[in-house]
């Protein structure tokens, strides 16, 4: 599942990722544009039992969340 939260204000990025997690997805790829959202999403995913891989893509950040 892919979630694009680029350019969204807090706390929309975390809320969208939370919805993806609630849907039970095993792997979620999150595309973000702000460093503070990266920290928020990462913390939330780890708290919910996901492993997080971090990468950058041009100006953007890419988080891969795996159960």
């Amino acid at each position: 599942m892919e979630v694009d939260v680029r350019g969204l204000s807090c706390p929309e990025p975390v809320m969208q990722v939370a919805a993806a997690i609630r849907s039970g997805a095993e792997e979620i790829v999150v595309l973000l544009s702000e460093a503070h959202s990266v920290a928020n999403v990462k913390n939330y995913a780890i708290e919910h039992g996901y492993r997080v891989r971090e990468a950058t893509k041009g100006f953007d950040y890419l988080l891969t969340l795996e159960k």
């Binding site: 807090c10 706390p11 975390v14 913390n43 939330y44 708290e47």
Partner: peptide, 19 residues
């Protein structure tokens, strides 16, 4: 640390996160 007074109350209520 992303200090925010409104965010503090918001996250506590919304996602039960007290950071």
């Amino acid at each position: 640390i992303r200090m925010c007074f409104a965010g503090g109350v918001r996250d506590a209520i919304l996602i039960k996160n007290f950071d």
